[in-house]
Design a protein around this nucleic acid. Structure first.
Lengths: 197, 197
DNA sequence: TCAATATATTAACAATGTTAATTTAATAAA
DNA sequence: TTTATTAAATTAACATTGTTAATATATTGA
């Protein structure tokens, strides 16, 4: 990587860092080109030398947040025994991350994406995220005959959809009203999906 | 209702009608105050004589769309035998409506809501919608001992969350890429949640 | 018919994303 | 080292958004 590339990456990094800070703090609705640039210490127009548009910049944060979320999930679940219990723990940690930083949930699932197909990889990254986090544990469930391959295929998606639906309603529609209710329901749902008689 | 109220309701109706048309056609991102007003045949500022702001107007459409969706669901499922089968049919028709009019899904679940608590009733309306559509069938399942009260309590929510999650991913994240895949997965999910051995 | 009121429209503002024009900094050639 | 050329950053400007203020136009009641 030549000097030019290093410098360019560094500049992009400043803007990405600023964007991430705003997303984690004030959330998506408080973000603006001028806002980001000010925090990065540059003029708003400079941003356009490094990103096609502001959405491009915003979606570049996805990778970083996924890494952060993954690290969080791992650290929260490393002591749990493999298998169904670990699967449950991963699901809960995953939700916990988004509850702590609702801006990242908005970015991952709510923010409208450009029609351009250049974002295709980012889209894939988002939809496969939960799969990547849980892959090992599902495979273990199959290996230990706790679940069949077919069951896993279904339950994996049920869990994923259920979590995203719950988070959408809670973060975007304040339903249920209290976090206690939310947590209780989440527990119920996870247990219902991941409990085998 | 005096003349004043009739006229006021009529005026509101024009704007609501225009908003609904745009939502169903171009969707939420193509909506604007000037856009709505032009279609309603008034100046954009006139709108503010009848609605506090544009979000207020937009959320007034929720009731209408719910009625429309409910009518659609009923007409699509009236011939189905009561019980689990009907429950499945209702779920599918519900999804079908939102797939046909993605703008209404955006309105119901994605569009950011004002922080004002005046929208509280609308929020409740949205979160309880699926419950209202399926209430009778769930009760019948309990009455016919197909499901226990406890099972219903859980499955009702699983179904609701799963559907919203799936729709969010499909409408907002193009996942899965084809409608065929989406339909197949929906079928799988509904059957998995609503099938009792 | 004319004053008072209600209603609608145009003008204007602030905030947004984006691009054009301009200035400033870095680099290479003499 | 000085100067011409290129790259990078900034300011100015534009179009679009929601909203409010100022103005014009109907409507109503005496």
């Amino acid at each position: 990587m030549g000097n030019k590339e290093i410098q360019e990456q560094r500049m992009k990094g400043y803007f990405i860092q600023a964007t991430k800070e705003i997303l984690k703090g004030e959330g998506l609705r408080n973000i603006s080109v001028r806002n980001i640039a000010e925090r990065a210490g540059y003029s708003y127009a400079t941003l356009y030398n490094y990103f096609k548009d502001v959405r491009d910049l915003i979606f570049e944060c996805v990778i970083d947040f996924q890494e952060e979320c993954q690290a969080f999930v791992i650290s929260e679940t490393e002591k749990i025994n493999p298998g169904l219990d670990k699967l449950k723990a991963i699901a809960k940690a995953y939700v916990k991350y988004f509850i702590q930083y609702p801006g990242t949930f908005e970015l991952f699932f709510i923010e409208r994406i450009n029609e351009v197909s250049s974002k295709q990889t980012t889209l894939k990254l988002i939809s496969n995220f939960m799969d990547r986090l849980t892959k090992n544990e599902w495979e273990r469930c199959i290996a230990t005959k706790v679940l069949s391959k077919k069951e896993v295929e279904i339950k994996k998606n049920t869990l994923n959809f259920m979590i995203i639906g719950m988070l959408l309603l809670y973060i975007n529609r304040r339903q249920p009203e209290s976090f206690t209710d939310f947590s209780g329901e989440l527990e119920n749902q996870i247990n219902s999906i991941l409990t085998v008689e």
